[in-house]
Nucleic acid binder design. Structure first.
Lengths: 206, 206
DNA sequence: GGGTCAACCGAACGATCGATTGGTCGGAGG
DNA sequence: CCTCCGACCAATCGATCGTTCGGTTGACCC
């Protein structure tokens, strides 16, 4: 067994167990067992429990961001870049469902300074999404509006990426097109007749 | 102090502590301290730790669903009902941020049969959203499509409802209109030129 | 063949967890 | 006045937690 291979197995086992049980409920003993090591054997590779979560989060976010950058670099049009973002996220959700679950659920559980380091990577991902929407925006939206729109989009993606909708990679692909069309239309047409359509409802009391 | 008042205080304290620390990291002792009781004093009111999470989740979901039903009953048009759903959710996120956080993050941590009971309430909420979208849908979407669209919408709402975008109730109101317009447009116009706009991007390789 | 080092493991540490036990205390009922 | 009961608490239980310690083993180097 290659030297890094055991390390990979540990992180993979940690990812599985933490995703299934939640970080604080996932005991080091259970992770060690899943990785095929004894408790003390695991501690030979890892300093403390927080480090396991930190490594899993860091590696997953790095992969997610790298994948996004790779896909974005292949597309020039703003619409294509939006679709690339959506595809990357859903694809990641399909291939690394456990990792995405941990990213969204357990990212606040780290102690400083690891917490800040992970938060920075999450922020880096968010910024890329915001840049895509800025290029796409025909209305000159403010930074705040773009930020909330970015969170809307990522929330949509997480709303389906972590649930059992994605049964195959083709599903993810098809769903990406759907989501892209739905979001793009609303995003582009904001100040047009969309508000018009809602005006009667907006006038009603609470 | 009235008899139910202490009980209210316990559930409120549990909600705060669990939201801040996560369920498994929130010790019964800390919840008891936050509620102004001793450890054994808390056990006078509650049978076991799981029951605390169960009560918090159940009460929060009941409130959320009741609020939604109340708001839906006041509106007749499909568009107005969509907006009512969005408003209800964002309003709940603003006034009960801790509860919404627990609903979205810790709902899987219960043991059976409590887990199923909470899952049923979540399902009831989802079904109401699905019904709203069905009334609104001009394309005769399948149940699966409507279900994923519902998850998209709820994902959007959770994407912003739990983050610090909502500084005031007016913010929540304004954001609801934004979200409503964005989603409505995309939802209504699906098979029109939205796919047209994405077609060039769709043809590109992965 | 003696020495060194990474790669482990069994056993145990103190701390903290959820939960229980045995009680005190004050007020309501008779 | 006595009894009873709900409300509450100090002390403690066994289990489990994260972490550490003291090894053993086998491969590699001189």
């Amino acid at each position: 067994m290659a030297i890094g291979e055991r390390y990979e197995g540990i992180l993979s086992a940690a990812c599985d167990v933490i995703a299934r049980r939640g970080f604080h409920q996932a005991s080091i003993r259970e992770i060690a067992r899943a990785a095929g090591l004894s408790l003390a054997g695991l501690y030979h590779y890892v300093g403390e429990k927080d480090e396991l979560l930190f490594l899993v989060l860091g590696r997953s976010l790095d992969r997610l961001i790298a994948g996004l950058d790779r896909h974005l670099s292949e597309v020039r049009t703003p619409e294509g870049r939006l679709l690339a973002l959506i595809r990357t996220h859903l694809d990641f959700g399909f291939h690394h469902a456990h990792a995405l679950k941990i990213i969204n659920r357990d990212h606040e559980l780290l102690a400083e300074p690891r917490r800040s380091e992970i938060a920075a990577k999450r922020q880096a991902y968010l910024q890329r999404g915001l840049a895509v929407l800025r290029d796409l925006d025909p209305h000159g939206r403010s930074g705040d509006e773009l930020l909330s729109a970015t969170n809307l989009l990522l929330g949509m993606l997480n709303g389906i990426a972590t649930r059992p909708f994605l049964l195959s990679a083709d599903d993810a692909r098809a769903l990406a097109a759907q989501v892209g069309a739905l979001f793009l239309y609303g995003f582009l047409e904001r100040s047009g007749s969309a508000e018009e359509a809602l005006r009667p409802a907006l006038r009603r009391p609470a």
